[in-house]
Design a protein around this nucleic acid. Structure first.
Lengths: 220, 220
DNA sequence: TGAACGAAGGTGACCTTGTCACAGACAAGG
DNA sequence: CCTTGTCTGTGACAAGGTCACCTTCGTTCA
């Protein structure tokens, strides 16, 4: 087993005592698609992602989904912090592994001890919290004030690798908080303008600058 | 001048040293309508509301507004915590006094000292943070998955005093994150069903149970 | 091998929301 | 009075969400 503490930059500032305490924990392997938690689950501990990517979704009545945020290596999950520190200790969102991942789960008592004893750990949790909150406010702004077209363009720009985005239209819809049908129609509109080409399970980007211009047109 | 620390329950658990430190600060009087901060302002300190009510809005391109959360006595502002602890130190939202209010502003250095030295203060800031985050997620859920009709009904139920809601339709629109015209039409629909009666600057509630049923119809 | 099934994507119809433009109603002060 | 600014109502239209249903692919498995 690798020394996961040394391999995780965000943990490097922790005190030696904290590292010792955490050293006893075993990383878990989580396959792509694994459910970390669902709405209503109890909070049993504080997960830290070591590798991979976990996505946290809100699910609405009609089955529509909205990506709240993604957790990447070294980051922590706010939903959990919320449960461990605040009032109600259950989740209101759903977390799924977007890729194969490894994570540790810090049990609640250990978490509380670290919070009280290690300023570096506090700092870690706090800045994670602050960043998430900022992200949530930006998300709020995008979802309620920006057009779907604009959000879609921004998404395509961000997720593109070698001019391609590997994702089904349903997935894209969940990421930007709209319905699949709308994504289908918007992508079609982009395609007719010659900006993209759609395939089953992927979108090929032809005119990235045009998309970027559109993404920036409506404010941030 | 009254002893504002003793009068604020949420501060009672602080250590004597913290109280001494805070005792030197002078409460500020803020009239209704006063602007606490605007987008782009720098974060100079950590405000704690002693009395009154402060509302924090997000403002979109077309001038549309959305109430993110309200700060009530003993509570603190997350936007600020975010600025003091996280990366970027400027606000992305706007805070207005909804009523005449009193507040203290804890200067940044004092805030940071208290965070490191007083577990009770930490607890205070942290739970405030956790509660806000929970509230933001609920807001997200309402704004992106619930109909305007439902949100409006819920708002009327919550804000009613003696069967009346004192607010202009513009204010209501900002509170539930929609456009004024839409509020006008929805209220009209409620009125035709005999549930409310509208006046200039107020809404009288006639059939509260009907509204409550509608508010609960689409999940929380 | 080919029938069947399920996931992904396309489309039309329809309703709800948001936007724009503008008009009437009302309150407070000159 | 008359004016001015705020509050409210309305029609027309565009954008987005929902529903129903169909087509097109891959995969599986009998």
């Amino acid at each position: 087993m690798t020394d996961w503490i040394a391999d995780t930059p965000s943990l490097s500032a922790l005190s030696p005592a904290s590292k010792t305490r955490l050293g006893a924990l075993q990383p878990m392997a989580l396959p792509r698609g694994a459910v970390i938690f669902r709405p209503g689950d109890d909070v049993t501990g504080f997960p830290v992602i070591l590798s991979g990517r976990v996505e946290v979704f809100l699910t609405g009545a009609g089955g529509r989904e909205l990506l709240l945020y993604a957790v990447e290596p070294g980051q922590t999950c706010v939903q959990t912090t919320l449960g461990l520190l605040g009032g109600d200790a259950s989740y209101s969102a759903e977390a799924l592994c977007a890729t194969d991942s490894r994570a540790i789960l810090i049990p609640r008592p250990v978490f509380l001890t670290l919070m009280d004893s290690d300023p570096a750990f506090r700092q870690l949790v706090f800045t994670a919290f602050a960043e998430r909150m900022g992200g949530m406010i930006q998300l709020m702004e995008r979802v309620s004030f920006q057009s779907v077209e604009c959000r879609l363009a921004a998404f395509l720009c961000n997720r593109a690798e070698n001019g391609r985005v590997q994702a089904t239209q349903s997935e894209i819809a969940a990421q930007i908080g709209t319905a699949r049908e709308v994504v289908s129609r918007r992508l079609d509109a982009f395609a007719r303008r010659g900006w993209v080409r759609t395939e089953r399970g992927a979108v090929e980007i032809i005119d990235a600058p045009a998309l970027r211009r559109l993404a920036l047109a409506e404010g941030l």
